[in-house]
């Protein structure tokens, strides 16, 4: 079975999606080929995807859905004449709760059905925005889970539902989590990263600018 990994990030190999792919691949005995939507003509890539039995498409969540470049790839795809092809998705998101990706998940399932692919499911991980910014030891547990997801994929050619569930937690924020996140201390911690970068770039005082009024 030939599998192709597609990186759907507008940051190509420089962002969180690439880290997800690298750690997924670390669980495999044979690395899988990776193509980058950003660097490809969507029509050509869509045609070449037909040479593979399974497509794994990893992407960041942008405004509750796929980045625009990934939608352009989907637009170039046609329903496959056989029903032997499989497709699965790995989505990494900034917000904590994975429910923010449920609109995308519903669409991906519907798209796979329309394109005549067997849908392997969508792995969703929230709270991943800082993966490529903070030191990697902050994300040790996540990276181990991705490695295990890769190992299980190589064994069974599917996503292990246990890892899908673990990575998808929390699906929603509990009332306790909301109170905690809204507390002054946690809110300040939440803003440290943004403020540090704003200060580093000399524009902290301009952070609330409204340039189009």
């Amino acid at each position: 079975m030939k599998t192709l990994i597609i990186n759907g990030s507008p940051r190509a190999n420089h962002g969180n999606t690439q880290l997800f792919i690298d750690h997924f691949q670390s669980g495999l005995t044979q690395p899988l080929p990776v193509r980058y939507v950003l660097r490809e003509n969507p029509t050509t890539l869509a045609l070449e995807m037909n040479d593979y039995d399974t497509i794994l498409l990893a992407m960041p969540l942008y405004i509750h859905a796929m980045p625009g470049i990934v939608m352009k790839l989907f637009e170039a795809m046609n329903p496959h004449p056989t029903n032997h092809k499989k497709i699965g998705f790995i989505v990494q998101a900034g917000f904590i709760e994975s429910s923010t990706a449920r609109y995308l998940e519903n669409y991906l399932s519907s798209l796979a059905h329309y394109l005549n692919y067997t849908y392997l499911g969508t792995v969703i991980k929230g709270d991943a925005a800082a993966c490529s910014i903070l030191p990697h030891f902050f994300f040790g547990k996540l990276f181990k889970q991705l490695k295990a997801l890769g190992a299980e994929y190589e064994k069974n050619e599917s996503f292990d539902p246990n890892f899908v569930e673990k990575l998808g937690n929390p699906v929603y924020l509990s009332k306790f989590q909301v109170r905690l996140l809204e507390s002054c201390l946690v809110k300040k911690l939440d803003q440290i990263g943004w403020n540090w970068n704003l200060k580093r770039n000399g524009c902290f005082e301009n952070r609330f600018d409204q340039p189009f009024l």
């Binding site: 980045p67 625009g68 470049i69 917000f95 329309y114 609330f208």
Partner: peptide
């Protein structure tokens, strides 16, 4: 488009984040 919004419109939505702040509220 393919049962969803077009890639061009999705690109427009992606580009609308400057209209909001990076900070999150709950």
């Amino acid at each position: 488009s393919q049962g969803f919004i077009s890639g061009n419109l999705k690109t427009l939505f992606d580009r609308m984040i400057p209209l909001f702040l990076p900070y999150t509220n709950y």
